[in-house]
Design a protein around this nucleic acid. Structure first.
Lengths: 217, 217
DNA sequence: GTCGACAAAATTGTTGACAATCTCGTATGG
DNA sequence: CCATACGAGATTGTCAACAATTTTGTCGAC
């Protein structure tokens, strides 16, 4: 556990961030029991703070809490991951549509640069770098779209399936499939073609769903 | 305040339901301060229970909590309501699409009956009844679609704009506009035409957005 | 040998009091 | 007369102890 044992202050936020980071990083396996006192001790906060953090994470769908039975890391099945990605599909489509309507010249330059970096990462076979740029692209599109409501929903949904996303990113050859899809999104937004942008975003997520189903085990 | 002053037991749930109902019913004006002790006393629960309820409602986006400053009823601006409805547009489109794929014969009968009742409500000018059937239709479509993830998101979003929805439903002539849109959704699902169903659902929500913008004040 | 009941341990839920923080009215000085 | 500093009141945040509940382990009976 790479966490410096701080003291309890405005510890709730610290606890929340620490646990969330641990969840995201996969330092804690799905289904694992999350005992309040234990975690509170680990992160150096009071039990009340940790409790509040767990409640927050439950609202975010990352943790499952059963009355008098404690909290567990929520496990999302493949089917659930697919359903979540279907929601992402339409929401990212909306963002892409709006982004194509509102994009500025400066932002187009930014996107073009991102496209070049994505291409470079694939050429060099740096899948980690690619995956990071991938997230940056999606974030940039959401930012350009100005759809804060959709953005929040997407962020929530993404957090729930980070494990599946990670597995997907590890698949050999996956970048070669998704790169042209990403470039198509960028291109459509740069051309200021909302309909094409939405279609491209949807097509990309549809491809992600197909790939997700293939990882079934 | 039509609430029987119970005692504090599993009072959190009671507090949550009570406050949520009050929010939905509009018994409490937007922007109003929500003092923990005061509400706890009103609903006959402990402050801890009320606090937990407020935290839950904050996660649902119904109230706003500022550290050391308390909770207020969140006010959603027209622009925010539009953004929320845009998200609803694509999500309900997804549900309609899936519903058209999975609908059973029995469910088609159910939808057709609902259509008749909607028509009847409009003919009789019962806008309250119509609005209620409206909600039932949307709920039925979500149910048929089996998209639990999208359903939850939609439920959250709807709760945030119930006030605006109410204002909309009160507008004279609104039912005459939305009825054919609703019938189109039902028809497309009954024909098992996913693409048409999605288009119909989107068109309906697009119309809602237009109407929302017109209520600007 | 297995099933059921009972008791002990572990864990979560709740309560009440206290501390920290913010708001607002009031007084003081320029 | 206005601005600023101060302080009382009100409100939220935190904590530690206690109560309620579930789980686990053990014993005895069939």
């Amino acid at each position: 556990m790479p966490t410096t044992p701080k003291e309890g202050e405005a510890g709730k936020q610290a606890a929340l961030d620490a646990l969330r980071a641990a969840l995201m990083a996969g330092d804690v396996v799905p289904g694992q029991r999350l005992v309040e006192a234990e975690l509170a001790d680990t992160f150096g906060v009071t039990r009340a703070s940790m409790r509040a953090a767990l409640i927050d994470l439950t609202a975010d769908g990352l943790v499952e809490r059963i009355p008098h039975r404690g909290a567990r890391v929520r496990v999302v099945s493949i089917e659930e991951a697919v359903a979540i990605t279907e929601c992402r599909m339409v929401l990212e489509g909306l963002c892409a549509f709006k982004a194509a309507e509102k994009v500025t010249d400066d932002q187009i330059d930014e996107l073009r640069e991102l496209a070049a970096r994505l291409q470079a990462a694939v050429d060099d076979g740096e899948s980690m770098k690619y995956s990071e740029l991938n997230r940056e692209l999606h974030r940039t599109v959401r930012e350009i779209s100005g759809q804060t409501v959709a953005s929040e929903l997407l962020e929530r949904l993404r957090a729930q399936i980070v494990r599946h996303q990670f597995r997907l990113a590890m698949r050999a050859g996956r970048p070669h499939v998704s790169l042209p899809e990403h470039l198509a999104i960028i291109d459509a937004i740069a051309r200021r073609d909302p309909v094409a942008a939405e279609q491209a975003a949807r097509a990309h997520l549809r491809s992600v769903i197909t790939a997700l189903r293939e990882t079934e085990n």
